[in-house]
Amino acid sequence: MAETVAVRCPACRREHRYTAPAYPCACGAPVAPRLDRDGTATPVSHRVWQDDWVAVRCGSCGRRGEWPRPEVGCPCGVVLRVALAEEDEQGAAARDDTPPADVPPAPEAATDRRAAAAARPPFLSVTIRTARDAVTATALYLRWLGYRGVRRADQRPPSGIGLAARGVVAQVDPAVRPATLRDVECLWLTAMTESAECLYFSLAGYADDARARADTLGVALFLLDLTGTPRPVNAPADVLSGTGTGTEHRAP
């Protein structure tokens, strides 16, 4: 259950009640940082990328992931960084860019997903000549993976075209430049607000720092070639391509 603590602004002395948000782990369990009830909130005077994230361990599967550090905006204009329990603070100080080790699914679930994937018909691609063709190919691939009700996403991404289905958000990037670190992080943050998985499809590939960050956050990256067949380019995408979503598959 998410914790609620009292946070006092050192500038105006106004007190706030703050509840830590919970984010979905890759295993499906909700994860929230542990707050320090006796700690003191600190004003944010300037932004440093490493300080905006905290490493939190999932209590269900043990996976350690990076999540946005808890903050409170006071009406006086001060942004307050909420104090964390010692374990999470140590995790934040010790974290690096090494992707967390994947925790394999339960043997029964893995077997069921592999069996469903083996029963899938071959993916039927469409040749990509336009940006619209790229969106069509991606929508067909999402259906092939097992997602149902694929539609245009309600929230438009900063670049490219967004698609959504139950439990997933996807971004199709037909640009001629590689997808950037910001592109990947914006997609991940959108997925967090929807409690969904996220998949990125790019025609031009990915910048090195974007690929590294995607591995850390568990974002599945695919490369779209002109035949319209998405190719997994990192481990999360490779696993999803091999096993699908575990739902019933039908030909697109």
Rank of each mutant, 00 (worst) to 15 (best):
A139W: 04
S202R: 01
P33T: 06
D225P: 04
A115V: 13
A153G: 12
V168C: 11
P105Y: 04
E185Q: 13
G149Y: 11
T19V: 08
V135T: 13
Q90M: 12
E248C: 00
D38T: 14
R151D: 12
V72Y: 10
P121W: 05
G146Y: 08
A164G: 07
L226S: 11
A29Y: 10
R14S: 11
Y147N: 05
G149C: 07
Y141K: 01
V219M: 01
E87P: 04
A131F: 03
V239I: 14
R166Q: 13
P105Q: 09
A118V: 00
Y18H: 15
R95H: 12
T127F: 12
N234I: 05
A118D: 14
M1S: 14
L199E: 10
R8Q: 14
S45L: 15
E108P: 07
A237K: 01
D96R: 06
P121M: 07
V48D: 11
P33E: 08
I161S: 10
D209P: 07
V82C: 05
V56A: 10
A170S: 11
R13L: 15
P105C: 03
D96I: 03
T193W: 03
Y23P: 02
R132G: 13
Y141M: 00
R57E: 15
V78E: 14
P10F: 08
P158Q: 10
A116L: 14
E87H: 05
R47H: 13
G167A: 04
L181T: 05
V82N: 08
D225S: 11
R151S: 13
V56S: 10
Q155Y: 02
A204E: 04
L226C: 05
L189T: 12
L223Y: 13
R250I: 12
R13I: 08
A119I: 02
G73E: 15
A139H: 01
D88K: 08
T180Y: 02
T98G: 06
P100D: 03
V135Y: 04
V126P: 03
A131I: 03
A212P: 01
G244I: 01
S125D: 12
D52H: 00
R47L: 14
C12P: 05
A93D: 12
C186K: 08
V31H: 05
T243M: 09
V239K: 09
A83E: 09
A116V: 11
P107W: 03
A137N: 08
L80W: 07
